[in-house]
Design a binder for these strands. Sequence first.
DNA 1: TTTCATTCTATTCATTTGATTAGGTATTGA
DNA 2: TCAATACCTAATCAAATGAATAGAATGAAA
Lengths: 237, 237
Amino acid sequence: MTISVATAPRQQRPSANGTRDRILDAALDLFADRSYEGATTREIAARAGVTQPLLNYHFHSKDELWTSAVDRLFSQFNQALGARRDGLHGVDDLSIAKLMIREFIYFSAAHPQLHRIITQECKADNTRMDWLVQTHVRPLYDTTVSLFSQLVARGEVPAIAPTNLYYILTGAGATMFVLAPECRRLSGIDPMDPRAIEAHADAVVEILFGPSAGTRANRTAPKQSRGAVTSSAKGDS
Amino acid sequence: MTISVATAPRQQRPSANGTRDRILDAALDLFADRSYEGATTREIAARAGVTQPLLNYHFHSKDELWTSAVDRLFSQFNQALGARRDGLHGVDDLSIAKLMIREFIYFSAAHPQLHRIITQECKADNTRMDWLVQTHVRPLYDTTVSLFSQLVARGEVPAIAPTNLYYILTGAGATMFVLAPECRRLSGIDPMDPRAIEAHADAVVEILFGPSAGTRANRTAPKQSRGAVTSSAKGDS
DNA sequence: TTTCATTCTATTCATTTGATTAGGTATTGA
DNA sequence: TCAATACCTAATCAAATGAATAGAATGAAA
């Protein structure tokens, strides 16, 4: 009824979107590499190609910048898992579990920052960790535990407590990518190579579900979710 | 200077040894928790109960303090592995592998700093990581790969490439303890509880070597290597 | 005792850090 | 056109950080 006196907030400039995302990209990389305290706002700004005060313009503080970057990362992760799950109808739980594990491994390879950031914030008396666990990790854990509990109950997976299974799965799946620089030096293998990712997914699934479980029959093409997920990068005519 | 009579260098004061080790303890904890850049020398000093300039007296720089703390940690780790291995004569390789894995898990539970520090330093263009890999991780990796290659060749372990096996093993074994604060909140389980440690060792061994491989038959009493192992990494004479 | 190296603290310094301020530019809507 | 607003930079601040300096306390050796 009331006439639109409340003029809609002025549109964001097109350039701003790109900048915001570049800042979030740089922030996520540096937070994951150097930890929250170790990553300086100046270095983040430099990597994003902007000046340091701009970070405090788009985000009120370093803390909010961290939160925004982590939010976006988990959003991408849940989107990847959800997209995979949506493509499955009438598939048995065992196959679903295998495919979800593979999707987790693909994402961990493309975005090792996820596991790195969890690890770095995982220390006593850390408010960022409280937020991280409650907001993002908890639902993931609950879903995983619920799925595996059913499989264990049916004997399709070794009878191991769900929590142990959760950390065995996440640790086995993500560690090689989290420690990619080390892996390259130790073995000469580049874990980020698509074939190496596929081989690792095979290995983890085979170890968890027994031999011949990790063969190509259960594979799915890694979704190549590497690059910018954001709808930015619209062609600037 | 003249012949200097080679008077044996004056003995260290008794109190100094204790102080040095307290500093190393505090440094290791804080480096593992907050990363190299995030851990401040003042906070380390405070936790050790000394003033900050004392760190630069015992160690020339923050970097040398980090190196000394990591050196001592790996020395303790190798000592634990070696002590376990020395107690085994005429034992088959498969059993040795299981016991070494258990020892790794026990140590990871008592000293999650080891995996945490490796993870934190694992980033491109990092001289600390170069030193860490070459000095401490490389021999560990080579030994592990060599042992597992034999087991795989004999079909006693799933046919998985050694590098993948290495990261599956370390990730599955250490992650729950590295993420202990998270685990406590998610599951209510305290991973540092001795029974929880034992259960996790059982789980990892069972997953790697098949069912009934992780039963009590293959267990060894966790060496309770919690406290100060230090015959402290020999002060440079 | 005296000597003297070892151990430790108080003070200080030059940088770096996150954040703020003031100002400048450009796009939008009327 | 012309204000209003979104976007971005230069300059700066107070607090912190690693390191250096000077010097006190301690105890072993002469």
